[in-house]
Design a protein around this nucleic acid. Sequence first.
DNA 1: CATATGTCCTGAGAGC
DNA 2: TGCTCTCAGGACATAT
Length: 277
Amino acid sequence: MPELPEVETMRRGLAPLAGRTISAVRQPRCRYRPIRVQPPIASLRRRLVGQTISALQRYGKRLVLALESGDFLAIEPRMTGLVLLADPPDPHHVRLQLEFGGQPPLKLIFWDRRGLGTVRLYAAREPTPWADNRLGPDALEISWQELAARLGRSRRAIKVALLDQVVLAGVGNLYASEALYLARLDPRAPCSKITAGQWRALAAALHRVLRQAIRYEGSTLADGTYRNALNQSGSYQNHHRVYNRAGLPCRRCRTAIERIVQAQRSTFFCPHCQHTA
DNA sequence: CATATGTCCTGAGAGC
DNA sequence: TGCTCTCAGGACATAT
């Protein structure tokens, strides 16, 4: 479940692609339903071959290859998508392959077990979600004042609101629980009841947990799905404070961590350490 | 308008 | 052992 830290780790791992030119675009035979590619593969191939990568960018959970023409290739890994320069975990779920000329020759593989990921090419002057305020400020950068201004009047539970990419970009189910724990804030707290001091603590907690997770190259859960660009595991899962720890003792007070469901997603928190006000 | 729910997808793991 | 069932949660479509 690549969130901001996992996608940032992928982005950094793709640094060798900067300045490289796409020589081929392949969509391997796959026994599964094809992933969503826009435009369709033939047109995508025509428009990509010969293009040179100028920069590797990330907007929230979206990886973006900026091309010298001004076009952008946006990759959304969603649940199980991986972007690799190395061999994939298995050959069966390779969904798209970009080949690059030069020495050494490089291959960018988009591998996706569940197939919920998407790949989309934006023309140079076409509006993109990240330049078009369809995506909130990056969770690593957002100030507490901005966070409070965007959510302060919402009646939603804070945990649910943090997952809204229009509010802020990059936070998913795992890091929402972790950040709320660090901020000692109850995930069920309605946004409108949160105080200035708590918004400040929450923004600081988001920055801290995301930076920390990037340092450990993201979280590889028990299903082993997430890997970096070289098909290696992250290690932040060893530092989780609440996620997937229902029944285990809180690292601060030893109270058992609880699991609840909010908006059809699991939330983990310490009922002793985390409060509404 | 804001918020809530349903849908897509595959594989792991539980239970029998 | 092998079957069926449930669950995981990204983003978006549709409903309230």
